[in-house]
Every structure is written in structure tokens, then in C-alpha cells.
């Protein structure tokens, strides 16, 4: 337990950042935002699966 508590108390490095003028953002956050944009565009472009043909329809 002591080892785990010590491990939990270690600071986690913030990771690399990118900077454009006044804007500073971590690469991880930038990737998440870009991924969300990609998912948004795909949601608009990809066809939705056709509904199953039920016997009563």
C-alpha cells in the first residue's frame, strides 16, 4: 500500500505542447479535438445502416 501511495504521489509530466501565438495546447488535447472533428465529419458523410425488413412492415 505504501508503494502504491508513493507512486500516486509522483507528479505526472504534462506532456508536449504546441504553441501558436497566444494559444498553447497540449498535443493530447489537440489530438482529442481533431479526433472529434473527424468523427463529426464522418457522422455527416457515412451512410446509416438500413433498417431491418420486419415481416410486419
Amino acid at each position: 500500500m505504501i508503494t502504491q501511495l508513493l507512486a500516486a504521489s509522483q507528479p505526472v509530466p504534462a506532456g508536449p505542447v504546441v504553441q501558436w501565438g497566444w494559444l498553447t495546447i497540449t498535443v493530447a488535447n489537440l489530438l482529442v479535438i481533431l479526433l472529434m472533428v473527424v468523427v463529426f465529419v464522418l457522422a455527416l458523410l457515412l451512410p446509416f445502416p438500413a433498417p431491418r425488413e420486419d415481416e410486419d412492415r
Binding site: F40, L42, A43, L44, F48, P51
Partner: peptide, 8 residues
């Protein structure tokens, strides 16, 4: 509604 954009 049969569009992925309505899923979110």
C-alpha cells in the same frame, strides 16, 4: 433520423 449525426 436515420443518420449518424442523430446518434450522439
Amino acid at each position: 433520423v436515420a443518420s449518424w449525426i442523430y446518434v450522439f
